[in-house]
Design a protein around this nucleic acid. Structure first.
Lengths: 214, 214
DNA sequence: GTCTATAGCAGGATAGAC
DNA sequence: GTCTATCCTGCTATAGAC
């Protein structure tokens, strides 16, 4: 039992440090030495606990990324349950709020985002896992929530594109921070994030608001 | 002179293969050996022509990525010049069209996108270069085009957020192909891309079209 | 379960012949 | 400018003592 604590703690520390480093530098950019030094344990422990470096990478998604994705999913569900019949605006707001100001701490969110961006652009075995366990379910949730409040004549294909567009903004404003900060000089403080949530909701509902011209 | 041809050709072949491989696997995922084998030249030629691996990476952005970005920029400019006073719709359409159906061939676009996504999420020295030479100028162009057709009371900050949202979609639909194909089962053929351009334009102008409910 | 020591190999870079 | 041969560092992974 005392041993089991040590076991868990070392394994946990490795997972924590591995997640941070993989998020920052990508799989190939990180060495096992780096991870074990950061985790304050021996070089050999990665192989002992996870077999090899690649399995450690997968374990990060399994034991760290997925639970966090579930907490995001739950935050959206809870937000939607406030209303018996959530409006379009409720759905968008729930999503934007969860991703930009939700249950995840600031640095946690960055880590979470970086890990999935790498998988989105260059899918590996890990993508299979998170698509099935997190991405598809969340997409389905949003789809089911929007379907009853969108015009009946809107076909499935176009409904999906609309949902992708909402995700596009939520995700983009998370991952393009470097560019956004560079262009606007704006830091991601509490105020700016609240403004972003408001903007995303508004843009998703009305776009640029072109009524005046056409 | 005959020598200069060989010189150029080897250097060019290295740049070509390096670009493809860096886009596919990222800087650390690629080895110099891999590049020179693909370019059908000797291992030492990378060091001869570019000094070291890192300089080759920067050269890819300088000699390959930037010219392509300029051709995209030009496509947008030319499209906008069709109208003396481009409407909001004209601006969005010009952007979406250039990025999804513009001057770049299919595989070229993917390469181009992958390279910048890596830099957007994890900026290096290369980001400085392309931000100054390509990203900021394009942003400015869109900003200048939209300013006269947006309400005067819209402040700079919010105008910028609107522009980011348009870019968000244009970029997202390029880079999240893996996810989109996985979820929709839809391939990026000519028809789908035309539908995307239409969708992005429409969504950017009207959002989900929430007039009915609020 | 944790450590040291090391095998075994792949990587970037260079020297020097042609 | 291009090539071969080679140096040397740093990597993953494992064997085996504790």
């Amino acid at each position: 039992m005392g041993q089991k604590n040590n076991y868990d703690m070392t394994k946990d520390r490795i997972l924590n440090e591995a997640e941070t480093l993989f998020a920052q530098k990508g799989y190939h950019g990180v060495t096992v030495r780096e991870i074990t030094e950061a985790a304050n344990c021996n070089l050999a422990s990665v192989n002992y606990h996870f077999g090899n470096k690649w399995n450690l990478y997968l374990a990060v998604f399994h034991f760290r990324w997925l639970p966090r994705a579930k907490s995001l999913h739950d935050a959206v569900v809870k937000d939607l349950e406030k209303n018996d019949f959530p409006s379009r605006s409720d759905v968008v707001k729930a999503l934007a709020h969860a991703f930009l100001e939700g249950p995840l701490a600031e640095e946690e969110r960055t880590r979470h985002s970086l890990l999935i961006f790498r998988e989105l652009t260059q899918p590996t075995e890990a993508f299979e896992l998170i698509a099935k366990e997190a991405v598809l379910p969340l997409f389905q949730l949003v789809s089911d929530s929007l379907r009853p409040v969108m015009p009946a004549e809107l076909d499935e294909k176009r409904l999906k594109l609309n949902i992708f567009s909402i995700f596009a903004m939520v995700i983009y404003f998370n991952f393009a921070r470097a560019a956004i900060t560079h262009i606007t000089g704006q830091n991601y403080d509490q105020d700016f994030k609240a403004m972003l949530t408001e903007h995303i909701t508004n843009f998703s509902l009305h776009g640029l608001g072109a009524k005046a011209e056409e």
